[in-house]
């Protein structure tokens, strides 16, 4: 016998369910008076540094139908490539940019939208620079464990060409599933959960 490692097991995930809005965006679903605003509904203010962009899109199921009950969160670096986090050791991020946003997909057409800034480049583990990207996390009814993915920018072809994560994608025709459509300042990122155009999801 050897010593027990003594680690705990991570709490298992469960679906966020169809009423995730009650907890995470109560004002969006008509529960007013508990929180002043929904957390993550605004990412920038007048003093935020960097190029303003809009990121919009839909989350689409295996039958081609947009999810009207999904919740999307994004996490990104500021315009200088710094994260607003205690684990950021390279400097201090823009105090007017927290880097995190939360948006439900609309009940009418399933569209989500973030007003944010274009992120700067951040290093991969070995020091090489990654291309500018935004991390996405998607939960919904029918999704048992939150799905992580990344959005890259269509106008960063050179940086995307040397990005260490994109280089790991064995089937090269799937790289484009992580690159948004549209052009500055409005980028369109449709996330396909399943099927021919299935987005690359990450085990991070």
């Amino acid at each position: 016998m050897v010593q027990d490692l003594g680690y705990l097991k991570e709490t298992a995930s469960q679906t966020a369910g169809p009423y995730v809005h009650i907890g995470l965006t109560p004002n969006f679903c008509g529960i007013s008076g508990i929180y002043e605003t929904d957390l993550g509904s605004s990412m920038v203010n007048d003093r935020t540094l960097g190029q303003r962009i809009t990121v919009t899109g839909r989350v689409i199921d295996g039958a081609g139908m947009p999810l009207k009950d999904a919740l999307v969160e994004i996490w990104q670096a500021d315009a200088a490539g710094l994260y607003h986090s205690p684990s950021e050791t390279r400097g201090s991020a823009d105090p007017n940019f927290a880097g995190w946003g939360r948006c439900p997909t609309s009940a009418e057409d399933g569209v989500f939208m973030f007003e944010t800034v274009k992120p700067g480049r951040v290093p991969f583990r070995d020091g090489r620079l990654m291309a500018p990207h935004i991390t996405f996390w998607i939960v919904a009814r029918g999704i048992n464990i939150g799905l992580h993915t990344r959005m890259y920018f269509p106008d960063e072809a050179a940086a995307n060409g040397e990005d260490p994560l994109l280089a790991k994608i064995e089937h090269r025709d799937r790289v484009e599933t992580l690159v948004a459509a549209g052009e500055s300042p409005v980028y369109v990122f449709d996330i396909h959960l399943q099927g021919e155009k299935e987005t690359v999801f990450l085990d991070i």
Binding site: R141, L165, L193, F201, D203
Partner: peptide, 17 residues
């Protein structure tokens, strides 16, 4: 209809995660 059919891409955490 809401589950990916393809394998996840594994990535040891970068500063983004």
């Amino acid at each position: 209809l809401r589950s990916p059919r393809k394998a996840l891409l594994s990535l040891d955490g970068t500063i983004s995660e």
